[in-house]
Design a protein around this nucleic acid. Structure first.
Lengths: 206, 206
DNA sequence: ATTCCGACCAACCGATCGGTCAGTGATCCC
DNA sequence: GGGATCACTGACCGATCGGTTGGTCGGAAT
């Protein structure tokens, strides 16, 4: 009996602060800063509004913290990519696949950053350098095998290409789903395979 | 004297309705549906709030109308692309260039649609078929020279690639600007040239 | 001349917004 | 056992939100 309660408690043993951050990420990613009230976040996290202001000085500070967390998650992900000794083709395939898997694993954080990106508001934001640094690391992964690239193709361009396509693909996923179901577009796995092939060899016939 | 007044009037001769729509597009594209109040739109258009509700039943209806207008603008743009008898390479170059120019010519509408896209809210939206139809037309432009494509490369995939890269490039423009200024990324013209080359021939050395 | 109608506005409505404040109960320190 | 600190709450604040109401005004129709 006591163990039942203890079980429930330990299963639910996230601090209010953690629950606030998680719910805020989810809600902000779905409806944006202005579309979510502090009350909604608080209720979803099971606390009262005033408690949110106990942990964060303002709604904006809560939002900034959530955004920073999402950026940091990607930095951590990058550490796990094993690319030493791999060829350009292998690296590209790995990056496309791992990046896409990451986006799908953390849809809320991804949407949040995409939202911020399309709003164009993160110019002077403290998140900006974080994104920049993550991008730079991917560029580095490709620069190590720059000799496999054709002349005049900069690693930064390739990195931009790959990340853009993955991000935009994620962003317009809903649009694709119907077309995939109708057979007008290939499945996700097939599309990814084609994409990598396309980046490597271009679209023209030999 | 009378002519001066007439001049001023004719220079300002947009109907309130037009001014409301234009200002609404601008403001919604910058701060989103929830970030803009009807009052702000009304003041920017030089009318009072009640007048907005005279022309539109609700804030949502105003937003939907603005969104639809932005989609239709792109459909009109597509009519102007002359591609008959052109090769795949020429078509790609033309599409990339014209599309990018269009995005830059109508930044508000572009941002508005991108915003809606990343919010993932336009599933059942009436705008959805409009976007779909525009995309289909671009696919058609490439399908006409499908024989120039390598086996297993679908025209729809290529269209998706091109439009995605342009749209995402526009979306993350602010992020790039600094890197271009620092010389870490090539200029826009050079980047576009590289992009087209890259799509045609891939990144691998021969 | 009167009626009608669409464009337009000031004033107002209830609801909700971000944020504040005084206070409660648990924990730890001395 | 008495402070001090902590996470936390209900009640409240002024401002602003989307939307409504009653009414003015000028021009076209009758």
């Amino acid at each position: 009996m006591a163990s039942e309660i203890a079980e429930q408690v330990s299963a639910q043993e996230k601090t209010s602060l953690q629950r606030i951050l998680e719910e805020a990420e989810k809600q902000f990613s779905e409806r944006g800063f202005d579309g979510v009230s502090v009350n909604e976040v608080a209720n979803a996290a099971g606390v009262c509004k005033a408690n949110v202001f106990h942990h964060f000085a303002s709604k904006q500070e809560l939002y900034d913290r959530v955004l920073a967390r999402s950026c940091e998650a990607f930095a951590g992900e990058l550490d796990g990519w094993q690319l030493q000794g791999r060829s350009l083709a292998e690296r590209l395939a790995q990056i496309v696949e791992s990046h896409e898997a990451f986006l799908r694993r953390r849809p809320h954080g991804t949407r949040l950053i995409l939202r911020e990106l399309s709003a164009g508001r993160l110019d002077g934001s403290p998140v900006f350098p974080l994104l920049q640094r993550n991008f730079e690391r991917v560029v580095g992964m490709l620069a190590e095998v720059a000799d496999e690239l054709r002349d005049g193709i900069a690693p930064a361009q390739v990195a931009r290409l790959v990340l853009s396509l993955n991000l935009f693909g994620f962003q317009s996923e809903k649009l694709d789903e119907r077309r995939v179901a109708l057979g007008a577009l290939p499945s996700r796995d097939e599309a990814r395979r084609q994409l990598i092939d396309l980046i490597l060899h271009g679209v023209l016939q030999r």
